[in-house]
């Protein structure tokens, strides 16, 4: 299965800018389907970005984050060619993770 995470990380002047797009329904638990049944909450709770085993960014997300969430963050200390690991886990215990190389 293709990864649910698309990442682009670019280093410039010592600062790495990372943009990540995750494919996920992010159901809030407040929305009803066409039959009037509530769609159960299903959303990413924690997303972490690590570089060389150190967390450089961690997001705790609630159901108010948009469907197919987009995130951008910036950090120092990484250089071109370094590997980053991006992983998430949702409220149903599903998870995914991917590796990206800084360009």
């Amino acid at each position: 299965m293709a990864s649910s995470i698309r990442v682009r990380a670019v280093e410039s002047g010592g600062v790495t800018t990372l943009k990540a797009l995750v494919r996920h329904p992010m159901d809030s638990g407040f929305v009803k389907d066409s039959g009037g049944n509530i769609i159960p909450a299903h959303f990413i709770q924690v997303l972490t970005i690590s570089h060389k085993g150190k967390d450089v960014f961690k997001a705790d997300w609630g159901p108010a984050v948009s469907k197919d969430p987009f995130l951008e963050c910036r950090f120092k200390g990484a250089k071109k060619g370094d590997k980053l690991t991006i992983s998430w886990i949702d409220n149903k215990g599903e998870s995914d993770s991917t590796e990206a190389t800084i360009a």
Partner: peptide, 12 residues
């Protein structure tokens, strides 16, 4: 080492 910047999309 991480800059105080974040961009995210939210529902309201």
């Amino acid at each position: 080492g991480t800059l105080p910047f974040v961009s995210n999309r939210l529902k309201m």
